[in-house]
Every structure is written in structure tokens, then in C-alpha cells.
Computed example of a mutant assay.
Amino acid sequence: MEILDTIVIGGGQAGLASGYHLQKKGVRYLILESSNQVGGSWSRYYDSLKLFSPAGYSSLPGMKFPGEQSLYPKRDEVVRYLQEYKRKFQLKVETNQRVESVEKGSEGFTIRTMTGDTFQTRTIINATGSFNNPFIPNIAGRDGFKGLTIHSSEYKNSEPFINQRVLVVGRGNSAIQIAVELAEVSQTSLAVLSPIKFVKQKVWGKDLHFWLKFIGFDKFPFWRFGKTAPSSSAVNDTGKYKERIIAGKPDQQPMFTSFYENGVIWPNGTKEQVDTVIYATGYRPQLPYLQAIGALDEEGKPSHKAGISEVPGLYYVGMEGQRSFASATLRGVGPDAQYVVKKLLHYLEHRM
């Protein structure tokens, strides 16, 4: 069996950016994608999703995001861009290859997939993201609630929720986008632990991402100081979302304390009947196939520094806060992939 130099697990934006830099360096590689197409989780997000960064700050290495650079791309535009990216650079991808297990030996790693295929590789870049492991907080009484509870990863559009009483749990960008959309057709509230914070999308006529890049915060190397880049729950806003919240469409309420059979109980003890609760509460890494080789900590999170695992020959791209504030975004995975590939090549050179 052929032993590849590296296998990239995941064919989303992080995996494609990794493939670009590997191919550029002449590395023998293969990208394994669990679904039937490249693009990662983008095609599964809600219909109306827009990027929180304009096209001019949303490109992978080597290929400019098309269209007006000041506009904010929609979900389907991102999907098309990632598929075209794969075609343009003729990246080596095998689809429908969900990784089941990884073993480490003297020559590198053995990867087995759900289809029964086996791959041999000297190194691995894990670039899977966390979309497949949505986080739902354990709130008292949840199991007894007779209404509908879903995670935002399952939300597509507002049609199924017309004339309902809906609560959206969360205060980040996705929570606000979904709640504003739902408020057009239903009685919707945001249930938040603390009041929503807004950040102006444009300052002095320039997008926020221009200023992040200008002052260097976008790529500040937090990892050099033993830290991951801080995440932000502030909502990027041109003014539209703040206006809607002020108008009460949707309104925001302090997080409910528990469920009861037909609804929720608010902090003041009031019960309210609710039809649907949507959790826009983010995601958590889930990489069980790396457990056996000692790559995860006690909480199941990857043990790494700037994408370099404690397990020799294993690397990551696409982790939130991996090397900078921009890590895990379209604009951030390219520099992270370049850094990781450089480290990977150094590792291979010293093993041969």
C-alpha cells in the first residue's frame, strides 16, 4: 500500500486551504471528505446566512472571492466558491470517506474509514471543524418539555415556525440573524445570559475587518504567549439588528431558568407557554478517532500549540483561536495552513 506524505481529514475551507499549500510544495497528499462534496458544513447552514465579513476579506489562498468586494456573501455563494476552488487547483479529494479510526505506528499513521477503506500516511492534518457536534446546554426540565427543541444547525428557514411562540437561546451573530428572521412571522424572543453587545460593521466608511487587519489584531500571534486568540460574542451590525432589537422584533429576555411541560420558567418565576426553542449555542470539537493515539485532553479537546499536536506528525487547521483572531474563518485558514505545512515539511525532512 502506498504511504502518502500526508492526509488531510476534512474537505471544508480549512482542508482546501491545506491542500493548496501542500500541492504548491509538491507534497504527496490526499483530502478525505465525509460528505459527497467539498465545502464542509456551508451547504447545511440556514438558507439566509450571510458572512460576517465582506468578500474582500473572505478569500482562500490563491483565489479571490468573486463579486463586489464590499458586499457580504450569502451561503450559496460560499458553497460555489469552495467548489470552484477545488476545481481550479485540481485538489486531490476523495468524498464519502468519513474517518472511523486512526492508529499510529513506526512509519506513521493508518486511517480507516466507514466505507472500509484503509490509508497509510506519514502525517495527518485534521481540518474537520465542529459543525457535526452542536452544543446544547443541559437546562432543568428539558426532557419533560413537549414542544420542539432544535439546534441552530438544524434551522433552515422561518416557514415551519409561522405564528408560533419561539425562543432563540444565544446572543451571537447566528442567534441574532435567525431571531430577526423569525420575528417577521412569529412572536420571537432572544433568551440571553447577558445583554447583546453590538459592534459597528463599518467605522469611518471602512468595514470592521479592515481595521482589525490595519491594527494587526486580526493576525496577532496569541499562541506565542501560551494563549488561544479570544473569541467574541459581539454582533457585527450595520445598524439593522440593533434597531430591530430596540423595536422588540425580536426582544431579548434574561435566560429562562428551566422548562416545564408546555414552556419555560423565567427568572421571576413566571411560566410561559412556548412552541419552539432554538439553541444558537455553538459547537464543540468532536474527534473520537484521535482518542486512541493520545491526541486529546481529558475534555476530549485537541492538545496542540498553534496547530501542532503533542503527537508527532499530527497537525490541525481550522481550530478556533488556533493562531490568531482570524483562525477558523475563510480569511484565516490560509495563513494557518501555510504555517502548519511548513512545520509538517520540516518534520518529514528530519524523518527521511
Rank of each mutant, 00 (worst) to 15 (best):
3 I>H: 05
205 G>S: 12
156 K>Q: 11
316 Y>F: 15
26 G>P: 01
301 K>S: 13
52 F>N: 11
251 D>G: 14
14 A>I: 01
329 T>V: 02
241 Y>T: 09
199 V>S: 15
80 R>L: 14
270 T>C: 01
38 V>Q: 07
45 Y>A: 15
327 S>I: 02
88 K>Y: 11
230 P>R: 04
163 N>Q: 14
173 N>K: 03
248 G>Y: 03
66 P>D: 04
249 K>V: 10
321 G>V: 03
111 I>G: 05
23 Q>N: 15
8 V>I: 14
338 Q>G: 14
49 L>Q: 10
326 A>F: 00
240 K>W: 11
11 G>D: 03
97 Q>D: 00
160 P>L: 10
247 A>Y: 00
204 W>N: 12
153 S>M: 06
344 L>M: 09
152 S>I: 06
3 I>V: 15
204 W>G: 06
343 K>D: 08
123 T>G: 11
249 K>N: 14
106 S>Y: 00
32 L>F: 04
182 L>E: 10
263 G>D: 10
66 P>V: 06
281 T>P: 03
298 E>Q: 14
294 G>F: 02
192 V>A: 12
202 K>C: 06
254 P>W: 06
83 Q>P: 01
32 L>V: 09
259 F>R: 03
157 N>R: 09
334 G>H: 00
74 K>S: 11
297 D>R: 05
59 S>K: 03
106 S>G: 02
160 P>N: 11
337 A>H: 01
91 L>K: 06
328 A>M: 00
115 T>A: 14
81 Y>S: 04
107 E>A: 12
242 K>Y: 07
133 N>S: 14
33 E>W: 04
188 T>D: 05
47 D>N: 02
143 D>G: 06
155 Y>C: 05
77 E>T: 02
181 E>L: 02
70 S>T: 13
28 R>H: 13
335 P>V: 03
241 Y>A: 13
30 L>R: 12
273 Q>Y: 01
213 K>Q: 14
262 N>E: 11
93 V>Y: 11
306 A>L: 05
122 R>L: 08
30 L>I: 01
247 A>K: 13
340 V>P: 05
185 V>W: 08
137 P>V: 08
324 S>L: 01
131 F>H: 12
219 K>Y: 12
125 I>C: 08
165 R>S: 15
11 G>T: 11
41 S>E: 09
311 V>W: 04
301 K>L: 11
136 I>M: 04
92 K>H: 12
256 F>C: 09
319 M>S: 06
253 Q>N: 09
30 L>T: 12
169 V>M: 09
166 V>E: 09
55 A>M: 02
297 D>I: 08
166 V>K: 08
310 E>V: 09
61 P>K: 07
119 F>E: 06
43 S>R: 15
13 Q>V: 03
237 D>K: 04
19 G>E: 04
208 L>D: 05
57 Y>E: 11
305 K>S: 06
67 G>K: 05
150 I>P: 02
270 T>N: 10
124 I>M: 07
2 E>A: 04
342 K>A: 15
89 F>S: 07
213 K>E: 15
302 P>I: 02
183 A>L: 10
249 K>I: 03
126 N>E: 13
27 V>S: 07
253 Q>R: 15
148 L>M: 12
